[in-house]
Design a protein around this nucleic acid. Structure first.
Lengths: 210, 210
DNA sequence: TTAACTTTGTTGCATTTGCAACAGTTTTTC
DNA sequence: GAAAAACTGTTGCAAATGCAACAAAGTTAA
């Protein structure tokens, strides 16, 4: 990824610029945005955490994305026509910066000294998003619940590889909705992984033994 | 999507510009690129079609992306560290334009009259990519083979909704690898969908009855 | 601080899916 | 144009997954 790119710095640029970026605050469980209006909106999570959630016709819930600080979301990333109810819900108090794509893409009429860089930074922002989506796609193409869990755990265990212990940032109920599998089947699989010695588990704390 | 954005026009811009974009031709079954070198390469398919393929440790093949004319791919869209063998293979004769992200992102030292627009066009290119990825993610989060098939079929049936007949642009073997399910299980499900009258099937021609 | 709600952990059972295998058909290659 | 390779269609069986249900633990709100 582009670790040299500072998203929070970018949000400051946005606010100093002619882009009409707005900052709003949300409480826990508040709906930050629904994806129904075909607006070309781009949002950045400045603080807190949130989920992008979909309910299908059968009532199945899917956590499409888990969003944490510096993550990007918005209707612009989704096709116009969609059959599903998509919305972003705050998991705790959140601060969200939002702006319109067109305000950045279209050449600035004022003599805004930031505007020139914005476009480049926007590319980086969206590139980082595609990378995360590809990680998500890899997870979802795994054929078994076991493989999904292992892939998910590996992606959490990124702290240099020294400590193999980490905390799952989701409830197990939500994790099942994120992996797109049945919760009880997932719990069963967690149990097997424990019994076979692949992992140790203490609440939401996981230690990998491989 | 941004239908007002002409990708092929963009490839011409690239070639007229200082960006050092290259065009290469590939034959059927030739490997266009492997994702192992961490290059910041972006490729655009100018003609032909190709698949982005992954093999996991168990030898399972997954078609991560199906690529057709104007589609974009490249190592830049994937995380640096990856455990998987990822490569793009031509399904027929292909022409591919490729360039380096840095050559576009970094300000042009020559007085290149196209360079200014490139950055904006690059945003659109990558935005279109994220939209396609989200469609893919929606497909993969479907819980059953039946739902995956139905979602896939709907996405093919986009010609205004008048004719409900279309041709699957993949072999059934490849379709299973794209939906990330077992081929024989998928064939069984296709048979059920037929028997229950949801679809009609004639080779790779499908007609929806709903 | 009690009541309501949510999450975790578990199980039995039905259904779905994957695996292995093979025959028939189509496509590719030499 | 014959042989090899790939694809389609199918099946029996085993394994994985989903569903429904419930008790216990934990959390939230009045």
């Amino acid at each position: 990824m582009y670790n040299d790119f500072d998203v929070l710095e970018f949000t400051k640029q946005l606010q100093n610029c002619c882009s009409k970026a707005q900052t709003k605050k949300y409480d826990k469980n508040e709906i930050i945005t629904t994806y129904i209006k075909n607006r070309k909106q781009i949002c950045i999570l400045k603080s807190g955490s949130a989920d992008l959630i979909r309910y299908d016709i059968n009532g199945n819930k899917t956590i499409v994305e888990t969003l944490k600080v510096t993550d990007v979301f918005g209707e612009i990333f989704f096709p116009v026509k969609t059959n599903n109810e998509l919305f972003v819900m705050a998991k705790e108090k959140c601060e969200v910066v939002s702006f319109m794509y067109d305000d950045i893409a279209i050449k600035c009429t004022r003599n805004c000294k930031f505007h020139e860089d914005l476009s480049n930074n926007l590319v980086r922002l969206v590139l980082n998003k595609t990378i995360k989506q590809n990680v998500r796609i890899e997870l979802l193409t795994k054929r078994t619940i076991r493989e999904k869990l292992q892939t998910y755990f590996s992606s959490l265990n990124t702290n240099g590889g020294l400590s193999r212990t980490f905390t799952i940032p989701l409830s197990y109920t939500d994790l099942a909705d994120y992996l797109s599998v049945d919760r009880s089947a997932m719990m069963r699989e967690l149990k097997s992984l424990q019994e076979e010695g692949f992992i140790e588990r203490n609440g939401s704390k996981i230690t990998l033994n491989y």
